[in-house]
Amino acid sequence: MLVAEKNALTEEIEQLVEKYGKDRSALLEILHEIQKKHRSIPDFAQQEVARLLEIHPVEVYSVISFYTFLNTEPKGRNLVRICQTISCDMKNKQAVVNAVERELGVKIGETTRDRKFTVEYTNCMGLCDQGPAMAVNERVYMKLTPEKAVEILNEVK
């Protein structure tokens, strides 16, 4: 990471700490904002957060690794999450998964070569009456068919 990038990141995190406070209870909100902007929480950011909240870097890492929606490694620009839990599974989520995998040329858990998409499974999204369900970034899509899923991806493209 370049010095200029580091400085910019530090400044950004300082502002977040200003906004949410130095208390440990601000940690997840700060991480969420970093994640949202950078699509991951870089090593350096983790250490800066630790420094400013006066906790250990390993504690920040420990928390990030606990929560599914936080990650230390960058993912694709668009994160596709397909619900794998029972109700969606029963509504033939597998067909949707197959279609998405075929369309993007990656398997679940992988990122496309152009880094445009990362595809993942997720646990119950609370859309069990509308399955199969899928989220692309913060937006949710319901009652998917393989065709519909592909269409959605193409719109994002």
Binding site: D43, Q46, Q47, I55, H56, P57, V58, E59, Y61, S62, S65, F66, T72
Partner: peptide, 25 residues
């Protein structure tokens, strides 16, 4: 490491069956 010595090198990482004690990253 964290409480007694306040050095803070070790913590649990991940969750569920993947939980393990780890260092930073």
């Amino acid at each position: 490491c964290i409480d007694l010595q306040e050095v803070g090198v070790l913590e649990a990482s991940n969750r569920g069956d993947e939980t393990k004690i780890a260092t930073f990253l």
